[in-house]
């Protein structure tokens, strides 16, 4: 499927879709969206790129094995979950900064948890798809 149109389009689509994925991730707390969908969209962005340019190229962009996103994401989510324990709350209690951050809005432990989910989903989907397409 290495047509010139698809190739050209994919190199523009990748950053756009990734931005869109982050946008979906960040708005999740107030409007439809969230880490899970955001992660899926980001994964799709990379998959489209690999369809057009071959997996080697996509791997070159990511630089490291996407599987490493899983432990990073899991640790981030776990950290967000256990941080409240140190401030005297129960596991998974929401902690929030007093003032909203520009562009992003309110920042709290739930957001970090969601980012963890986001990274895990990207890692999982890319690992599975890359492994299958390389093996077959």
């Amino acid at each position: 499927m290495k047509t010139i149109i698809f190739k050209t389009a994919s190199s523009y689509l990748l950053p756009l879709l990734l931005l869109f994925a982050i946008f979906i991730l960040l708005r999740g707390h107030y409007l439809p969206g969230g880490g899970f969908v955001g992660g899926l969209i980001a994964a799709i962005a990379f998959v489209i790129h690999s369809f057009a340019n071959g997996i080697e190229k996509t791997r070159g962009i990511i630089k490291f094995h996407p599987g490493f996103l899983m432990p990073i994401g899991l640790s981030l989510a776990l950290l967000a979950a256990i941080t409240p324990l140190f401030t005297g709350g129960a596991l998974m209690t929401g902690l929030w900064f007093e003032n909203p951050v520009p562009v992003i809005g309110m920042v709290g432990s739930a957001l970090f948890f969601d980012i963890g989910v986001f990274l895990v989903v990207i890692g999982v989907v890319l690992t599975i798809i890359f492994t299958i397409s390389e093996t077959i």
Binding site: G28, H29, Y30, M106, A110
Partner: peptide, 12 residues
């Protein structure tokens, strides 16, 4: 502190 109930259920 979230308005999207689905997401709040998921992450909180």
């Amino acid at each position: 502190k979230g308005k999207n109930v689905v997401n709040v259920i998921l992450v909180d």
